[in-house]
Write a protein that binds this DNA or RNA. Structure first.
Length: 273
DNA sequence: CGGTGGACCTGCTGGC
DNA sequence: TGCCAGCAGGTCCACC
C-alpha cells in the first residue's frame, strides 16, 4: 500500500498527536506479521515518552526518550492510526498502544506484510532492513549523476530499477509508473539504454512527483488512510496508474496495462517511448 | 554478481 | 446469487 508520500503523510499526521506523549501500555493481539513481533516488545515500550516521529524511506520511526526507536513498515495493507480509546477494535487490529491521555495508536494490517520492531537509536541505520537502502529522493545528494551510476550498468527494466530500494528509497509501483509517464519513458525500457539526458529527467521528476503526492496527502484506493483515518487525494491526479482502457490525459490514445513480474505497469503507448 | 519469479497473507472485484 | 480466478500500495529468498 503505502509508498513514500503515504508514509510521510502518516508521519506528519502522527507527529502532533504523539510528540511528548508517554506510552502507558502496548497490547499485541497478533504477533505474526512479516516477522514475529518479539514478545519483549511491549515491555520495551511501556512508560517510554515519544520524542518525535520520523521517516526513512517507507519506514515510520517513533523516537523514544530512552534512545530507542519503534520502527514500523506498513507492507501492502498496513495502517497506523491515532484514535479515541472508545473507537471499536477492527478485525486485523494487531497492536494497540495506549497513551497517557487515554488515546490509542493502533496498527492494523489485513495482509500482515508489515513489520514492527524496537531498536537502539545508535543501531538504527545498521538494522538489516535499513542498512542497504539507497538515498532518499529528497536527499540533496540525489541527482542525475547518482541515478545514472545505477542505470548505466543495469540491464533491468527502468520500472524495476526505480522499485529497487537500494537505488532510491521510497518509490513504489504507483509512483514509478507516474514518474515514467511524466518523462515519456516506457516502464519496460532497459535502464542501460536510456540516454544520460533522460536519466537526468527521471532523477528530477522523482522528487517532484513525490512532493506533489505529499501535497495531496497520498493516494487512496481501497485501504490507504492517513494517521486520522482520512483518505488521500492524489488518486484523482494519477495519469496512468490503474487507468487501463481509459483515455490518456495528454493525447487521444488509451492507457495500456502490462503484467511485468508480479506488478502491473501502466503506460500511454503514444506518449511513452 | 545480476536478474527473475514465487512466496508470504487477506480481501475485493469482475466474469461466468 | 454464487463461485472462482485474478489482482492489490512491498519485501525477501531461492534459484538460474
Amino acid at each position: 500500500m503505502p509508498e513514500l508520500p503515504e508514509v510521510e503523510t502518516i508521519c506528519r499526521g502522527l507527529q502532533p498527536h504523539l510528540q511528548g506523549r508517554t506510552i502507558v501500555r502496548v497490547d499485541v493481539l497478533q504477533p505474526r506479521l512479516r516477522s514475529l513481533v518479539e514478545p519483549a516488545l511491549p515491555g520495551r515500550l511501556q512508560d517510554e515518552t515519544i520524542v518525535r516521529v520520523g521517516r526513512r524511506a517507507k519506514y515510520i520511526l517513533i523516537f523514544l526518550a530512552n534512545k530507542t526507536v519503534w520502527v514500523f513498515h506498513l507492507g501492502m495493507s498496513g495502517k497506523l492510526i491515532h484514535v479515541d480509546a472508545a473507537t471499536p477494535l477492527q478485525k486485523h487490529d494487531h497492536m494497540v498502544a495506549t497513551l497517557d491521555n487515554g488515546r490509542e495508536l493502533r496498527y492494523h494490517d489485513p495482509r500482515r506484510f508489515g513489520l514492527s520492531v524496537v531498536v537502539a537509536e545508535a543501531r538504527l541505520h545498521e538494522m538489516p532492513q535499513l542498512r542497504h537502502l539507497g538515498l532518499d529522493p529528497f536527499d540533496s545528494r540525489f541527482d542525475g549523476p547518482y541515478l545514472h551510476a545505477f542505470t548505466k550498468r543495469s540491464a533491468r527494466r527502468i520500472r524495476d530499477l526505480l522499485l529497487d530500494q537500494q537505488v532510491v528509497a521510497g518509490v513504489g509501483n504507483i509512483y514509478a509508473n507516474e514518474i515514467l509517464f511524466r518523462v515519456g519513458v516506457r516502464p519496460t525500457h532497459r535502464a542501460c539504454r536510456l540516454p544520460r539526458g533522460k536519466v537526468e529527467q527521471i532523477a528530477a521528476m522523482i522528487p517532484k512527483v513525490l512532493r506533489d503526492a505529499i501535497r495531496w496527502c497520498g493516494t487512496s484506493f481501497s485501504d490507504y488512510r492517513d494517521a486520522d483515518d482520512n483518505f488521500g487525494e492524489f488518486q484523482k491526479r494519477l495519469r496512468v496508474y490503474d487507468r487501463e482502457g481509459e483515455k490518456c490525459r495528454s493525447c487521444p490514445s488509451v492507457i495500456k496495462r502490462l503484467p511485468l513480474g508480479n506488478r502491473s505497469v501502466f503506460y500511454c503507448p503514444a506518449c511513452q517511448v
